[in-house]
Nucleic acid binder design. Structure first.
Length: 546
RNA sequence: GUCCCCGUAGCUCAGCUGGACAGAGCAACGGCCUUCUAAGCCGUGGGCCGGGGGUUCGAAUCCCUCCGGGGACGCCA
C-alpha cells in the first residue's frame, strides 16, 4: 500500500527520489499512534528536499485503501504515518489461541538443528549460583528456540579429565586417608568443600577402610571413579529438580580416550596453525583476530583444556548442527575469540557458533555480599537455593535480567513470599483466572462453543489491550530466539499479567449479559493459555490455586 | 596496559538493528474489598538516560573520548 503510493507519487512527479528507502512499518509504543506506524516520509525528507509532513500528506492522499482493513490513516509528529486498523484482525486471535492451546506461541518448523550447551559445571562439587543462572538461561533459551521452530538439543559437557580432576582426586585421596587414620597433608589448593567428606564416607562404606594397602594408582582410580559418578549423579538430580533435563551428557574423557584430540591436533598441524615454542605447541589464534596465541599441548605432552574443547566443538559440527550455542560465564570471555578461530581453522563457518556470555551473579544476604568459592567450601549451592526460595522463583529471578547484566540475588528478599517477588504476580494472575472458571462451574456456567461466541462484544480498552498483547506472543518468541534474549519472555509475561489484573479490577467476567459473559470467558481462557505457555518457556509452573 | 559487560527515578532494572512526551517493579504518599482470590487495582510525587564531543531531520540507542563499578588476560578449567 505504501509502496503503491510512493510509485504513484513518483510517476506523477509529486515526490522526487531514486529508490524507495528501507522504511519500517512497526507497532508504535503508544496506542494513540495507531496499530502500525510508518516512517517512510521522514527517511525521504532529505533526498526529496521536502518537509516530511508534506511528503506524508501526498502519500496518504494517494494510498489505495480498499481491500485493506484500515479504519483511518493519520499523520502525526514529525511526519509519521499512522494506520488505524479496524478490529477484525484482533477478533481472529481468540480462535487461533483457543485451537492451538499449549502450542500457541510456537512458530513454524524451520528444519534446522540447534544445540544449546549450558551449565557444564566441573563435576568436582556442588552447583553454585553461576551454574544456576546458566541453567535457567540455557534451558529457557532452549525452550524459546524450540518454540521458534528449531530442532533443539540440550547438552552438558562433563569435564571429567584434566588438571581439575587431578586436584579433585588429590583432595579426595587425602580426605580418604585422613578419615581412615593416616596422617596426610591436605593439598594446599585442594577442594575443601564439606560435600567431599560425605562422598569419602560413601567410599568407605562401599570399599572399606583399606584402600591404603592398594597400589597408589589403583587406589586413586577407585576413588576418582566413584567420586565422579556420584558427583555427576548429584548434578543430574539437582538440575532435574530445577526443571532441566539434557539430551546428552558428553564426556571430555571420551575425547581423550578415542584419539579425537590427537586427530584434531594433527589436522590443525597439517593446516599450519600449530607451532612449537618454549617446548610447548601453540595454536595460532592471532591468525583469526585473537590477541595472542594459545597453548594446546603442554611441554609435558598433556593437551590443554582448550585443545579438548576444540575437539569437542569439532565433534559438535560433525554431528550436523546448523547452529551451536554455548552459554558461558563472563569469566570465559577471553576464550571466545580463540574458540571461534579454531572453528574457522577447522573449516567451519564460525558464525554458526554463538556464545552467550552471561555476567556473574552476586549473592547477597542481608545486604552483604556472600563470597563464593568452591575452594573454601562457602558456596550456597543450587539445591539449597531451590529449597529456600523454590524452583519457580529461582528460575524467574535468574532469567528476569538481561544476560549482559550483573545479577544481584538477595537471598533474604527471594525467600520472602511477598509482593516484591514478581513471579507471584504472574502466577497469581493465572490462579485468579482459574478461580473465575471454578466460580463459573459452581454456578453451572461453562465456556460456550467457540463458534457461538460473539467476540466483537469485547470493546473495552482493557480487553483490546489484552488481545493485542496475546497476539504479540509468537513474534516475541521469534525475537527472543533471534537475539538470544530469554529475559524478554519474563518481561512479556509480566506485562500480560499486569493487563489481566487491570482488566479484572475494572470489569466482571461473570455477569448478566450472556453474550458478553461468553466473550469474556473466552478472553480469560486465551489469557490463561498464553500465561501458562509463557511460564512454561521459563520453566515456571502455572498454579491453578494460590 | 589490552579486552568484555555495566552506568537510565531513592533501590533493582527494562528500553539500545536511531524515531513521536524516557518505562516497570519496589520504596514514599493518597484512594479502592456487600458480587469472579486486595499476592490485586487506581492515582500522586520523583529522571543533566555517568561527563564531554561527533554523525543525523532526529541519539538513552550509533561513533570517539574521559570518569566510575565489575570481570578476564595461566603450559588452570
Amino acid at each position: 500500500m505504501v509502496i503503491g503510493a510512493l510509485e504513484n507519487a513518483k510517476s506523477r512527479g509529486l515526490i522526487n527520489f531514486k529508490q524507495i528507502p528501507e522504511f519500517l512499518i512497526e507497532v508504535p509504543r503508544e496506542k494513540e499512534h495507531g496499530d502500525f506506524a510508518c516512517n517512510v516520509a521522514l527517511l525521504m525528507a532529505r533526498e526529496a528536499r521536502q518537509a516530511p509532513r508534506g511528503i506524508a500528506e501526498v502519500l496518504v492522499e494517494l494510498m489505495e485503501k480498499s481491500g485493506h482493513p484500515v479504519e483511518k490513516i493519520e499523520i502525526a509528529g514529525a511526519g509519521f504515518i499512522n494506520f488505524f486498523l479496524d478490529r477484525s484482525w484482533l477478533y481472529e486471535i481468540p480462535l487461533t489461541v483457543y485451537n492451538s492451546k499449549d502450542k500457541y506461541g510456537f512458530n513454524e518448523k524451520k528444519a534446522k538443528k540447534v544445540q544449546v550447551e549450558f551449565v557444564s559445571a566441573n563435576p568436582t562439587g556442588n552447583l553454585h549460583m553461576g551454574n544456576a543462572r546458566g541453567g535457567a538461561i540455557g534451558d529457557t533459551l532452549a525452550n524459546i528456540l524450540e518454540r521458534a521452530g528449531y530442532d533443539v538439543e540440550r547438552e552438558f559437557y562433563i569435564n571429567d579429565a584434566g588438571n581439575q580432576i587431578k586436584i579433585f582426586t588429590d583432595s579426595m585421596e587425602a580426605r580418604y586417608l585422613q578419615l581412615t587414620g593416616h596422617d596426610v597433608q591436605f593439598p594446599e589448593n585442594g577442594y575443601a568443600g564439606r560435600d567431599l567428606i560425605d562422598t569419602v564416607r560413601n567410599i568407605i562404606a562401599r570399599y572399606g577402610e583399606n584402600l591404603y594397602d592398594l597400589p597408589r594408582e589403583e587406589r586413586r582410580q577407585i576413588i576418582a571413579d566413584y567420586a565422579l559418578e556420584e558427583k555427576i549423579e548429584y548434578i543430574k538430580k539437582t538440575l532435574a529438580s530445577f526443571g532441566i533435563s539434557y539430551d546428552l551428557w558428553f564426556s571430555e574423557k571420551s575425547l581423550h580416550e578415542n584419539g579425537k584430540i590427537e586427530a584434531v591436533l594433527n589436522d590443525l598441524r597439517e593446516k599450519g596453525y600449530i607451532y612449537e615454542s618454549e617446548g610447548a605447541w601453540w595454536f595460532k589464534s592471532t591468525a583469526f583476530g585473537d590477541e595472542k596465541d594459545e597453548v594446546v599441548l603442554r611441554a609435558n605432552g598433556m593437551p590443554t583444556y582448550f585443545m579438548a574443547d576444540i575437539a569437542y566443538h569439532q565433534n559438535k559440527f560433525e554431528r550436523g548442527y546448523d547452529w551451536v550455542i554455548n552459554v558461558w560465564g563472563a569469566d570465559h570471555h577471553g576464550h571466545v575469540a580463540r574458540m571461534k578461530g579454531a572453528i574457522e581453522a577447522l573449516g567451519y563457518n564460525p558464525a554458526r557458533l554463538d556464545i552467550l556470555l552471561m555476567q556473574l551473579v552476586r549473592l547477597y544476604r542481608a545486604g552483604n555480599i556472600v563470597r563464593m568459592s568452591k575452594r573454601t567450601g562457602t558456596t550456597v549451592s543450587l539445591d539449597e537455593l531451590i529449597e529456600d526460595v523454590g524452583k519457580d522463583a529461582a528460575r524467574f529471578f535468574f532469567v528476569m535480567r538481561s544476560p549482559d547484566s550483573h545479577l544481584d540475588f538477595d537471598l533474604e528478599l527471594a525467600r520472602q513470599k511477598s509482593q516484591e517477588n514478581p513471579v507471584y504476580y504472574v502466577q497469581y494472575a493465572h490462579a485468579r483466572i482459574c478461580s473465575i472458571f471454578r466460580q463459573a462451574r459452581a454456578e453451572g456456567i461453562t465456556l460456550a462453543g467457540i463458534n457461538e461466541i460473539d467476540i466483537s462484544c469485547l470493546k473495552e480498552e482493557e480487553e483490546l489491550a489484552i488481545l493485542r498483547k496475546i497476539a504479540d506472543f509468537p513474534e516475541e518468541i521469534a525475537i527472543a530466539a533471534r537475539t538470544l534474549a530469554p529475559h524478554r519472555i519474563a518481561h512479556y509475561v509480566l506485562d500480560l499479567a499486569a493487563m489481566f489484573h487491570s482488566f479484572y479490577n475494572h470489569h466482571r467476567v461473570l455477569n448478566d449479559n450472556r453474550a458478553l459473559q461468553d466473550a469474556r470467558l473466552l478472553l480469560m481462557e486465551i489469557t490463561r493459555i498464553t500465561i501458562h505457555n509463557a511460564l512454561g518457556v521459563l520453566g515456571v509452573t502455572a498454579p491453578e490455586q494460590m
